[in-house]
Design a protein around this nucleic acid. Structure first.
Length: 259
DNA sequence: ATGGCTATATGTTATAGA
């Protein structure tokens, strides 16, 4: 089972690039972030015609997440638990029925800039809620993963210019500590487990020729429960997508599970 | 570089992103 995460930065803007990548990469399951679309406006028929079931959790203008799956889905849930007043569409999860069932969680973690401030407070509070959901997933002792745009640079080697990010919500010590507290509950960072080298990036800004200079950061992550990590047979970053026609500023990250 | 580009809706300007 090949599972990918991709922050597409607007489904309307990626109406050609996303199907093109699906045809090339042929993932079984994709969690999407920043669909920037309401559920009724999402072009679901386009993806159904490609063989994917479509589950969306959208909102007007920004945010919005979705799951595309060639395999059956059960128990779809929308919204991160823990705050009924949170109206931002940043979380969707479902059980994918492969040879083994896998609980797939798609997340779009708040950016948090400017920090300090209310947006940063929201980011840290959201991560606390995420930690609670993550702990519950581990307690179930089943194959599960947390995939998405985490908006956190884990370590200095995950940025081409770490010094440029020291005051940014993506790299502040509190953000990194919150990510570590979740990961250290017992998750495996799929990309890091397969490749310890620095210089692996998933995002390149549209500005200042960041892509041409390879001035990137690694902020899209897939975290696996032990039962999922035991089944991992591969993981990767589809970096070339950033150089394609009308690209998102993020690229897909994927993991292959024996499931 | 003091956000330099991109996307969307709030639309010929503002908001958000990272």
């Amino acid at each position: 089972m090949k599972i990918a995460t991709f922050n597409i930065n607007g489904i309307k803007a990626r109406i050609e690039a996303l199907p093109r990548w699906l045809a090339e990469a042929s993932p079984d399951v994709v969690v999407l972030q920043e669909i920037k679309s309401q559920d009724e406006a999402f072009p679901r028929a386009l993806f159904e015609d490609l063989g994917y079931r479509v589950e969306t959790h959208g909102q007007k203008g920004f945010n919005g997440v979705a799951i595309l799956s060639r395999l059956p889905l059960e128990d779809v849930a929308r919204g991160l638990p823990g705050d009924a007043s949170d109206e931002q569409a940043r979380w969707i999860e479902a059980t994918v029925i492969g040879a083994v069932a896998v609980r797939v969680c798609g997340l779009y973690l708040p950016n948090g800039n400017p920090a300090p401030g209310p947006k940063y407070d929201y980011k840290l509070a959201w991560m606390e809620r995420l930690k609670a959901r993550a702990a519950a997933l581990l307690a179930a002792e089943e194959p599960a993963l947390l995939a998405g745009d985490w908006n956190v640079i884990p370590q200095a080697e995950d940025a081409a210019k770490p010094e440029a990010w020291v005051a940014d919500a993506l790299f502040l010590p509190e953000s990194r500590a919150a990510l570590r507290r979740i990961a250290h509950l017992g998750f495996t960072d799929a990309i890091r487990a397969r490749d310890p080298r620095p210089g692996l990036y998933t995002f390149w800004d549209y500005q200042a020729a960041a892509w041409e200079k390879n001035n990137g950061i690694r902020i899209d992550h897939i975290l696996l429960t032990p039962q999922a990590a035991d089944r991992m047979t591969g993981a990767g970053i589809d970096k070339a997508v950033r150089g394609g026609d009308k690209p998102s500023d993020h690229v897909p990250v994927w993991v292959e599970l024996e499931a």
